[in-house]
Design a binder for these strands. Structure first.
Length: 212
DNA sequence: GCGACAG
DNA sequence: ATCTTGTCGC
């Protein structure tokens, strides 16, 4: 079992670092990407099932996927989701035949109480660009800026609320890619009739079947 | 103390 | 996340 207070202190330390480096995160154009991954987790009995799908970045077609099962080392606590799901997800990502250029995570990135949500956590551990896409808000205020609904947290614009087919998606910077590009890339990965970006939708799909 | 609270 | 009945609407 993980020490909750220790985990929060670690997040605060790494989150402050992430906020400092935020300005240096580069714009990343779709043309620079070859592979993109979508990750998700589900549960079966007392195990966390991590799923990582590998897609062609341009066509968004599924190439393959991998999974990993782990015993949760902590109960679900809002703000500490990564300590519960990231181990299985990172393990699954390591099994893919190719390293993705971008990882789309089911959950928040910098729109987190200590600026260190699961998307940022996974991106930093693997040193890969990542974006968080959550179905519900967690932390930060939505403000209209330049005609866009941005998520402001820790004094900075770290994400955006994107309305898609009646639903709302809370997109936030994960790691290594600017907010501007994160929004643009997620919008590209959204398709009519599918609630989530294709990468996480595919991971969700597979993840759900494996928990049965 | 009260309410909020990703998956 | 997962467990679950009925109900509303195309």
């Amino acid at each position: 079992m993980i020490d909750v207070e220790r985990a929060k202190r670690l997040q605060k330390l790494l989150g402050e670092r992430a906020l400092r480096e935020l300005e240096e995160y580069p714009d990343i154009d779709l043309s620079e990407l070859t592979y993109v991954s979508g990750v998700d987790a589900s549960y079966s009995g007392n195990e966390v099932i991590g799923v990582a799908v590998l897609l062609d970045a341009l066509s968004l077609k599924l190439i393959t996927y991998s999974t990993s099962r782990k015993k949760p080392q902590i109960p679900y606590i809002p703000g500490l989701l990564a300590f519960r799901e990231a181990p299985a997800i990172i393990s699954a990502l390591a099994k893919l035949p190719e390293k993705p250029d971008l990882i789309v995570v089911d959950g928040h990135g910098l729109s987190h109480p200590r600026a260190f949500g699961i998307a940022t956590h996974i991106g930093l551990v693997l040193k890969r660009a990542s974006i968080g896409v959550a179905k519900k808000p967690l932390y930060g205020e939505v403000k209209l800026i330049d005609g866009r609904e941005l998520i402001v947290a820790h004094g900075r614009a770290v994400g955006a609320l994107i309305r898609h087919g009646g639903a709302r998606l809370y997109v936030s910077i994960g790691y290594g890619v600017s907010l501007r590009s994160s929004i643009k890339l997620v919008e590209f990965m959204l398709k009519p009739g599918v609630k989530l970006p294709i990468p996480t939708h595919e991971a969700d799909n597979i993840s759900r079947k494996l928990s049965l």
